[in-house]
Design a protein around this nucleic acid. Structure first.
Lengths: 168, 168
DNA sequence: TATAAAATTTTTAAGCTTAAACTATTTTGA
DNA sequence: TCAAAATAGTTTAAGCTTAAAAATTTTATA
């Protein structure tokens, strides 16, 4: 009988505990952000993520690139972009030479709107993580950076910029 | 002009980086779990979370308690329970003396089903966090435990068991 | 007792998310 | 050349999620 089958694998238990704590913290923070985006900017987290990705891309992105960068399904991006277009925040631009693809850009209004949200977003995070000093933040960040080793062979497209598109 | 307004607050930037990394890792792991629950158990993450909470509660839980414990809206729980009841995994039981409330329990089949999923769930997490040794897991876990200080004044109901309901 | 307030749950409307199917277009290669 | 494969994007069906409103029942209080 292996130690594993005894249900006493403390490494496994410790990893499970770590995961559950990450999940709890992440959900709490997301919930706070969602609430504030809703009440203070009449927006949502997915919209914010999309706008951040577009803000970082000077010339906009193809729907394709957007969904890979955000790691969400392409149908999902279609819906969010539809609503941002309705808002006047984003525009779809035809790509010459390929009638299948569309380039998606923030409008001037969209860029301005995003800047306002991004400044506040950074303030919110700073406040929510008030209890974490710079050393700890850096340390946890480094550990997380190389965290799910088994996941790192997943396609990324984002290497060298693995934290995503937010550049205020 | 303050250092803050110069946009050079490196503590703030470090906290933002930490948040974005947590978000990325959490979403990747959630995505893996969702995929495996779907293909291997014809289930979902929200269903798993609900079943875990009910499994841990010998006598079941009121809808109320369930939604507080999982920190999701009560309407949300209604929908998930509806589907678990359709599956025969869960049953609603009237509470005598209070016709407003319902107690929700795993059925015998539901308990058995959950045990199977929970064992695999722990294995999956263990594999996904393969790159994290026990010391690191413990260390990050401790840091996360006291992480968003600003959030800790939120109602919890879960003190002393802050990592949630999973007890295999 | 009457009835206002509080508690418990469901319903509703809107949006997010995915996988799978579908349409349209471009590229490949026989 | 032109059929097959690949690529880009949308649509669809199902489920998750929330906030707000509604329905029901219990509790408190005047």
């Amino acid at each position: 009988m292996t130690a594993e089958s005894l249900g006493k694998n403390s490494l496994s238990k410790e990893r499970l505990r770590l995961w559950l704590r990450m999940l709890r913290v992440t959900r709490q923070v997301e919930s706070e952000l969602r609430e504030r985006l809703r009440t203070e900017h009449d927006s949502t987290l997915p919209r914010f993520d999309v706008m951040a990705a577009l803000y970082a891309a000077e010339e906009g992105l193809k729907m394709n690139e957007l969904s890979k960068r955000l790691r969400v399904s392409n149908g999902n991006v279609t819906g969010i972009i539809d609503r941002l277009v309705d808002d006047g925040t984003v525009e779809r631009i035809a790509i010459e030479g390929d009638r299948r693809a569309t380039r998606v850009c923030l409008t001037v209004v969209g860029r301005k709107t995003f800047r306002g949200m991004a400044v506040e977003h950074e303030r919110w995070i700073n406040a929510l993580f008030e209890g974490v000093n710079e050393e700890d933040a850096h340390h946890i960040g480094e550990l997380l950076h190389r965290l799910p080793a088994s996941l790192n062979d997943a396609p990324t497209l984002n290497d060298g910029n693995a934290d995503g598109p937010i550049n205020h």
